[in-house]
Nucleic acid binder design. Structure first.
Length: 725
DNA sequence: AGCACGCCGACT
DNA sequence: GTCGGCGTGCTC
């Protein structure tokens, strides 16, 4: 008999422990999924450990003090994870203060994750020849049999088709046997491989510096277009040739198709692509390819960091500042932290690349925790010319509040030259609020404390938090006034304004509303690339890695819209957005231009952003962070409690905060009220301190008490939160 | 998390 | 009198 410790599929901090089950099957191993009966329900569990016992079920139950149940069945033939990955999951749960099972679920592709919602693995019928001694066969039969023998195995369908006349007969004669095998659908592409490019002297210097760097982690700070990718590729080549594996991480594959293309052109069938756009079957196949060493390079998004590498030689994290590297749901891990952990295990280098590094990373580089390598020259072209325009001044002069006269003239100029324009506005929908001009009534989501956005296209009101859709009223629901109108503007209204201002102009709009279907990103970008539109209007998703040679003007319509006082990182995010968006302009030999429209252009983020002056921005912003003792000078942990009952929530949040206040080594802020989401009230307790381990210990302790006292509120912990909203 | 058990209000 | 609301407790 085996006694096993099992993690239950329910991802809740309240059930974050192993449960003990018995198993009669000797094949049970750590890392397998099992079916167990848990509180009268059939659930999937994940095996943490197995030990031998010789007691019977009754004496065991008596000794342990609870009724031990038997495992119903085992789902897997072999352990799903390597020891490294299993330990990584436990480490991640501890680091992010999240349920262990949620870490296993995050690591494994959907097809094999420990959850009842996991999908079935697709199987196919195959045939192979049996060992036989001299049987008499006709010529045709012999031919078919020999063919199968030399190929070892064949798809049943193919076998029957190719040897229509004899295949059935041979099967009847018991010379071939059928078996099942996992279906493989991935299509081999015939690519023309390209050779490495000649590095410029600056690139060569940078590559050498990375190689000779004593630190394990190197921050590669290179302006857009300075050729970071070529350095990654050539370093990857050397690693592959030495027989080791390479992981290249990108923020979002659909937005950076160039990177995938270049890696594929360089390494061909050695490459696996792993990202959220793949369906479950495709993901599973890529996972298996890596697991069985059939590829040596993986290009992927955040979750690719969990691929089952056995001998990793290099990790590249491109655009390391990008916020999508942090998962915003249950294990709220940062991909960068997982990278560093895996790199330690595999003893390999990590390159963090960006034109606008995160303050956290750059601060570490300054402190020599990371190595720092800088590329300051653009390879083929000069940087675009950036102009700031004050929308406040423009509005005083009676200009359009969306597109100022300066931007308007530049668009006309580029349009007449048949060059392309990108307009960035970080707000989707038609307008963010419906408001009554008479009584001031604003229409709110019935389930969340946020205003509903007006979507003119679908003629409805949408909640951007929970997705609720409501019909539009003609009059103010409070005072029945007819001055009931949309206020502010989003991409839909901007597009309307562009058509109104420039009759006959062709536009494409790219935001969450136009990219919901599969491969929508690619289709929109391809259309723009074929010059089917003069102007591309979009949210921040168009600020990342796009590379269109004919784009010579980028307009950031509302550059300071993201600056709010509630989030200390909003200035940094705005800086990234401005510089990344500017980098889309003038990428070929044509001189590019950027117009930044802002309500207050005197803000330092606009000045340094316009000048593409990272260092000045870094110094200034770090000073503010120091004065407000915010990261990177301190660490933060955010604990959000939620409950449908507000009174309950308030009292439980206060108790929770009190448990944390036991130490004077760190500050406990709150509980403070957050806006309601999906009918649940939320409160946040924030802790801030210099020692992250201490903070984590305190939260672990308070979470344990929350559980012990059986508080009913939901708990969600975010260690090193990137956003506070 | 998800479910059974149990105690009080508004119905046939 | 019962149906069903959701507060409470438990899960190897």
């Amino acid at each position: 008999m085996k006694l096993a410790q099992i993690w239950i599929e329910h991802a809740s901090l309240k059930l974050n422990q192993t449960y003990t089950y018995l198993c009669e099957d000797d094949r049970l191993k750590r890392g397998m999924r099992v079916f167990v009966n848990f509180n009268g329900r059939r659930l999937v569990g994940f095996v943490e450990s197995v030990e031998n016992v010789c007691e019977d079920i009754c004496s065991l139950s008596a000794r342990l003090g609870f009724n031990v149940k038997k495992i119903e069945s085992i789902l897997d033939q072999e352990s799903l994870l390597t020891d490294e990955l299993h330990e990584l999951a436990l480490w991640m749960a501890e680091e992010t203060i999240s349920p262990v099972i949620s870490c296993f679920q995050a690591m494994l592709p959907n097809k094999i994750k420990p959850s009842s919602s996991h999908q079935k693995i697709k199987m196919e019928r195959w045939v192979r020849s049996k060992e036989v001694k001299d049987v008499k066969l006709t010529v045709k039969q012999k031919e078919a049999f020999e063919a199968l023998k030399t190929q070892h195995e064949m798809r049943l369908q193919q076998w029957r088709e190719n040897y229509k006349s004899v295949s059935k007969k041979l099967e009847e004669m018991n010379l071939v046997e059928q078996f099942e095998k996992e279906a493989v659908y991935h299509k081999e592409q015939n690519l023309i491989l390209k050779n490495d490019l000649q590095l410029t002297s600056e690139q060569k210097r940078a590559k050498l510096e990375i190689e000779q760097c004593t630190q394990q982690v190197v921050l590669l700070h290179g302006v857009t277009g300075s050729g970071k990718t070529e350095i990654y590729l050539q370093m990857a080549r050397e690693v592959i040739e030495s027989g080791r594996q390479v992981l290249i991480l990108v923020p979002e594959i659909s937005l950076t198709p160039q990177m995938v293309k270049r890696v594929k052109e360089r390494f061909g069938s050695e490459v696996a692509i792993y990202h959220s756009g793949l369906n479950h079957q495709e993901k599973y196949e890529q996972y298996q390819l890596i697991r069985h060493h059939q590829v040596s390079v993986v290009v992927g998004t955040r979750s690719a960091v969990f691929m089952p590498f056995t001998d990793l030689g290099l990790i590249v994290m491109d655009e390391e500042h990008d916020q999508s590297y942090k998962q915003d749901s249950m294990p709220q891990y940062h991909c960068r932290d997982v990278c560093l952990k895996r790199a330690q295990y595999h003893k390999c280098k990590v390159i963090l690349g960006s034109a606008t590094p995160s303050l956290d990373s750059y601060a570490r580089a300054v402190k020599k925790v990371y190595g720092l390598v800088t590329l300051s020259e653009r390879i083929n072209h000069s940087l675009p010319k950036v102009t700031c325009v004050s929308t406040k001044e423009a509005m005083k002069k009676g200009q359009s509040y969306m597109i100022t006269d300066v931007l308007k003239e530049k668009i006309i100029e580029r349009w007449s030259k048949k060059e392309q324009v990108i307009l960035l506005l970080n707000r989707r929908g038609y307008s963010p609020v419906m408001k009554c001009a008479d009584c001031g009534e604003v229409l709110m989501c019935p389930h969340c404390d946020v205003a509903l956005s007006y979507h003119k296209e679908d003629h409805c009101l949408k909640c951007h938090v929970c997705g609720t859709i409501q019909p539009v009223f003609r009059h103010c629901p409070a005072c029945h006034s007819s001055h009931w109108m949309p206020m502010g503007f989003g991409t839909q209204k901007l597009e309307e304004e562009v058509h109104h201002m420039f009759p006959g102009i062709k536009t494409l709009r790219m935001d969450a509303d136009t990219t919901s279907y599969k491969n929508a990103h690619q289709k929109l970008l391809d259309a723009f690339g074929r010059k089917e539109a003069d102007v591309l209007i979009g949210t921040q998703m168009i600020a990342k890695g796009l590379d269109f040679p004919d784009v010579t003007l980028v307009g950031v319509v509302n550059a300071d819209a993201g600056l709010n006082h509630t989030d200390f990182r909003s200035v940094e995010t705005t800086f990234h957005l401005i510089v990344q968006a500017s980098g889309r302009s003038g990428r070929s030999e044509k001189q590019g231009e950027v117009i930044l429209q802002a309500f207050d252009p005197s803000h330092y983020v606009l000045k340094t952003g316009a000048a593409n002056d990272y260092l000045s921005f870094f110094q200034k912003e770090m000073e503010y962070r120091r004065l407000s003792s915010n990261p990177p000078y301190t660490y933060l942990i955010s604990v959000v409690l939620s409950d449908a009952n507000q009174q309950h929530l308030v009292s439980e949040s206060q108790r929770f905060a009190q448990w944390l206040r036991s130490s004077s080594e760190f500050k406990v802020l709150g509980p403070s009220e957050l806006y309601r989401i999906q009918d649940r009230y939320r409160m946040r307790v924030l802790i801030k301190g210099k020692n992250l381990t201490q903070l984590k210990d305190a939260v672990h302790y308070a979470v344990a008490l929350h559980r012990k006292h059986q508080l009913r509120s939901g708990l969600s912990v975010d260690v090193n939160p990137l956003r506070l909203d």
